[in-house]
């Protein structure tokens, strides 16, 4: 499996505060990589550095083979992003949202039309193409937002707490979409603080106070820390945290 994300001692400082310290890890193509941590542990900072939204203070990182310092434009073409804040325009219709996001990635109009049709089929939203996003239930919106974030077939998709405020059934359906994307070879980098979601990941890294405290598959982590669930593992690590949000 080729590696798509490589970081080496990636660090971000805000003044004297070290938000993310010497992060070193690799993520393989098609992998679902979970990024866990309490609020303020540095997850979002780390993710923003990888997306080119934030310039690292030191260390190295390549995303899809491109350098985070010098090739941010190329990185941007090859990643998708969905933030914890809901990110579709609710005064536009479903198909207008798809067309807009596909359009700003430079897709041609016939390609956008084809993609829109495929995407609506996948989500079983064929009847809702002309519905304003505002009128959709939250779960649908979130599934739509995920599909839109990978509308341009990126190599990697970054999901920043994508399932906040969604019921467990919808969350499960959301993860079906994530698996489908990973099966197609899209690498998924996801932050979350739902421990059931951590179980769904191939590998999980747990951040405490800006450093990666543990990194392995959920099964190995449970064995290593002697917990019955990821919840136990997380609690074991997180209670050592000195920073309180």
């Amino acid at each position: 499996m080729p590696t798509v994300i490589t970081t080496d001692k990636l660090t971000k400082r805000f003044g004297s505060f070290v938000a993310a310290s010497e992060l070193t890890f690799k993520v393989d193509k098609g992998e679902i990589f979970g990024f866990l941590g309490a609020n303020g542990a540095g997850k979002t900072t780390a993710m923003r550095m990888l997306c080119g939204l934030l310039k690292p203070s030191s260390g190295k990182a390549t995303i899809a083979g491109f350098d985070v310092y010098t090739q941010t434009e190329k990185i941007k073409r090859n990643i998708g992003y969905m933030s914890q804040k809901f990110s579709l325009y609710d005064d536009l219709t479903v198909s207008e949202n798809i067309r807009f996001y596909a359009g700003i990635y430079g897709m041609s109009l016939p390609a956008i039309r084809e993609k829109t049709r495929m995407l609506l089929d996948e989500l079983q939203l064929q009847g809702e193409a002309k519905t304003l996003v505002r009128q959709l239930p939250l779960g649908w919106k979130q599934k739509l937002a995920f599909s839109v974030s990978i509308v341009h077939d990126p190599e990697i998709v970054f999901l920043d707490e994508p399932t906040g405020g969604v019921d467990p059934v919808t969350r499960r359906q959301f993860w079906d979409l994530i698996y489908a994307a990973a099966d197609k070879g899209v690498t998924v980098f996801v932050t979350t603080h739902y421990m059931d979601e951590a179980e769904y990941c191939n590998r999980v890294s747990i951040m405490v106070d800006g450093v990666i405290a543990a990194l392995d598959s959920p099964a190995s982590l449970k064995k290593q820390f002697g917990g019955a669930s990821m919840e136990d593992v997380f609690y074991e690590l997180a209670r050592k945290a000195k920073r309180n949000d």
Binding site: C51, G52, L53, E73, K76, R77, I79, Y81, M82, S83, Q84, K85, F86, S87, L88, Y89, Y101, I104, Y105, G106, S149, F158
Partner: peptide, 10 residues
């Protein structure tokens, strides 16, 4: 929150 998406896009 759409501004972040725009800034992540090319």
């Amino acid at each position: 929150g759409t501004m972040e998406i725009l800034l992540v896009s090319p």
